[in-house]
């Protein structure tokens, strides 16, 4: 039952992704876990420097702000189920703020 899966995550250069590369983490696998659950595990237990857009995440597929590229497909971190080793990257068409957080969708005229 102590199955683990490997997350391969694209990091910003200053945050462990030397040469704009990837960092890998082993995460305990649970059936019915989302990519967001995996990232939460990494953040809480393995690497608190990891950035992904979740400070205001709804976790229910409603806010749609946790979009990322998951194994090459664009999807919501909170609604995409993990079934095997998983690669997570920022949305390629958007500038990166840090790690998986992109500069999309700011709303300000203040």
């Amino acid at each position: 039952m102590n199955e683990t899966i490997r997350f391969r995550i694209r990091r910003s250069p200053a945050d462990g992704g030397a040469g704009n590369g990837y960092q890998e983490y082993d995460v305990p696998f649970t059936r019915g876990m989302s990519v967001m659950d995996g990232l939460d595990y990494i953040y809480e237990h393995l690497d608190g420097s990891l950035a992904y857009y979740d400070h205001a995440a709804c976790n229910q597929g409603i806010c749609r702000r946790c979009l990322a590229r998951i194994d090459g497909q664009t999807g919501l971190l909170c609604q995409t189920l993990v079934t095997a080793d998983t690669t997570v990257e920022p949305i390629p068409t958007q500038d990166v703020e840090r790690d998986l957080v992109t500069k999309r969708g700011r709303d300000r005229n203040g």
Partner: peptide, 14 residues
């Protein structure tokens, strides 16, 4: 403390 002292989207800081 924090794992990183970056100011940009620092989850632990928040």
């Amino acid at each position: 403390g924090l794992s990183t002292t970056t100011r940009s989207y620092n989850k632990e800081w928040i």
